[in-house]
Design a binder for these strands. Structure first.
Lengths: 333, 333
DNA sequence: GTGCCACGTCGTAGATGGTTGCCATGGTGC
DNA sequence: GCACCATGGCAACCATCTACGACGTGGCAC
């Protein structure tokens, strides 16, 4: 592997000059610059990023730590991030914490150790210190989808409470009586906010949320499945269910199909998060859609700005959701 | 940020001793080691991975370059890779080439520049040189899902030809007459192999593949949709379609739903690759399932072995697919 | 008892590859 | 002839690892 010294020798200049040419400084004689470029081409020289990072004390790598790489919600967000990053000349490395605080910590340590330029994360633990360690070491943090109070970092969120309220109000309007809610783990801000929206909507309709109709699951398909089963086994099962994320919606749907229940005749269904196949499933599924690509974009733009101006005031962007009414919630037209 | 010298000063030893303790060498007095560890704790010292990588000329990072982060096939594979990597004490960084040769090249350059320990890739271009540059620089390459001839690297594939043959033979058995095929871009080995399997099965049944019933699309949903539309607009449209990847199957399905065609009454459908929602769609979709998690596992294990023994002979593992017959292909029982 | 050798342990110094502040040099303009 | 500017080289620096050598101690042999 050729080094900058090999290039310098071949171009008959010093390594400093090679470095200047490669970094596009103006103070180099064009003739020399050409010799350098020629030598680079002949030797197939590629700059050693590790050495460069060490000297410059930073990289052009962004870490994106998401909690489930198999969830289309996150992968769509990643696309938004990537587009901004490549426009900024940075590369994105994706880390899958898998809702596992241990793995998340490991990836945070990697981002720190590798001196990544910044981190975009949807926290799956509540370890505030880990993230503050990052930001206090000069590695900016942007939270996306979920917020962790006390973390010094920007955030891009959606109006979960409002979205959940709209979804629940829609079920109320459609005449459903016993509306259940399957939400996620308590440590996820999305889970508690969406539950709150659900409660608000019921109260606005003059009803009270019934704890026997509320389940906390793990944001995964199996959790949605089991929660649905447990709801159906209640003495008074629900006639409608609001599920607060897409994978749990899939699980709940599977459970309903297994039991040969009619949707929305026996049980109506509304999910949070859009899924690519929402229109293919029979019946098609009503969802609270999030602007996933936009969330990614916004988070990436915040990161880029913070890298440019580390001392900016912290910002917190809230995007809006939109209810997409489909067949799974409209039996009573 | 504390350095190894700060630790050394505090523990009253030399930096070399700190390094030895941190790397678990035996040749250090236990009392000194304890002092070092105490100093590390008190200072909150974390080793600078960049400097370490520079000195050691390698990292413990694996790059996984996939061609579509929104495809569940790849994300499931990534899980298999991660499990092996973390057992080996390595971290996985995921790079999304998005079927874009430019982006792929950029990520390969990053892997090279950052001196990653190895690369697992599902190539989306046919630039053999890029990959050989990696392997000749001492960064081992493992291809997964797709093979690129001429690349010095291990490979984990599935028996595409056989899987496609089984799928097509199944449609023949079910009595379909005009069986079409929607396959992927020619540069992807998976696309051509699956097309070959399709042809083989037709010939084995004493028929000949009809070029007006074959389409090459882009492995994405829109491509599948347009190819399906174009097939349906033929003077003699097909009564069955074999689609060679999951996203195109979704697109084809959308097209059939739009045109209010009955599946499998008007057109039968068999897809390649399992999708999480295959059982939720009505009718459920017959697929050729791949052992995705196992593919990831196998690729990761090959990489780990090659890092340990760089001079091993190249290997090429072929896994088997399995046909999952569901409702979309069984109108003639 | 003494001298030598071996071995365990630790520090010094150089190496990894690239960047950049500072200074020297040479040329040009006034 | 002097001053200034453009340009390029020297050397320090980033944080860590490790080969080599030094030092001390213990054991063994004479």
């Amino acid at each position: 592997m050729a080094t900058i010294y090999d290039v310098a020798r071949r171009a008959q200049v010093s390594a400093a000059t090679v470095s200047r040419v490669l970094n596009g400084r103006e103070t180099v004689d064009p003739a020399l610059a050409e010799r350098v470029l020629a030598a680079v081409g002949e030797l197939g020289y590629r700059r050693n990023a590790v050495a460069r990072n060490l000297r410059k004390q930073q990289t052009s790598l962004w870490a994106v730590i998401i909690s489930d790489v198999e969830n289309p919600f996150f992968t769509s967000m990643v696309r938004g991030i990537e587009d901004v990053a490549s426009a900024a000349g940075c590369s994105v490395v994706l880390c899958n914490s898998d809702e596992n605080p241990e793995k998340e910590s490991r990836y945070i340590a990697v981002a720190l150790g590798e001196q990544m330029a910044g981190v975009i994360i949807s926290p799956s633990s509540d370890r505030v210190e880990d993230l503050n360690l990052l930001s206090s070491s000069g590695c900016p943090v942007v939270m996306v989808d979920r917020e962790l109070k006390g973390v010094r970092g920007d955030a891009v969120l959606v109006d979960n409470e409002n979205g959940a309220e709209e979804a629940t109000a829609h079920l109320v309007e459609q005449g459903y009586e016993r509306i259940a809610c399957i939400t996620g783990p308590q440590r996820a801000s999305t889970a508690t906010e969406r539950l709150r929206g659900y409660r608000n909507a019921l109260e606005a309709a003059g009803r009270r949320a019934n704890d026997t109709l509320i389940r906390m699951a793990n944001f995964r398909a199996d959790g949605g499945h089991d929660a649905m089963a447990s709801l159906l086994d209640e003495q008074q099962p629900p006639d409608a269910v609001f599920v607060t994320n897409n994978l749990m919606t899939v699980g709940a749907l599977e459970c309903l199909v297994e039991r040969r229940l009619d949707i929305p005749g026996d049980v109506a269904l509304v999910g949070f998060d859009e899924v690519p196949w929402a229109d293919l499933v029979r019946p098609s599924i009503t969802t609270v859609a999030q602007p996933t690509y936009e969330e990614g974009r916004a988070a990436a733009e915040l990161l880029a700005r913070r890298i440019a101006e580390p001392d900016r005031a912290l910002t917190r962007q809230i995007l809006r959701t939109s209810l997409r009414v489909r067949a799974s919630s409209t039996s009573h037209p």
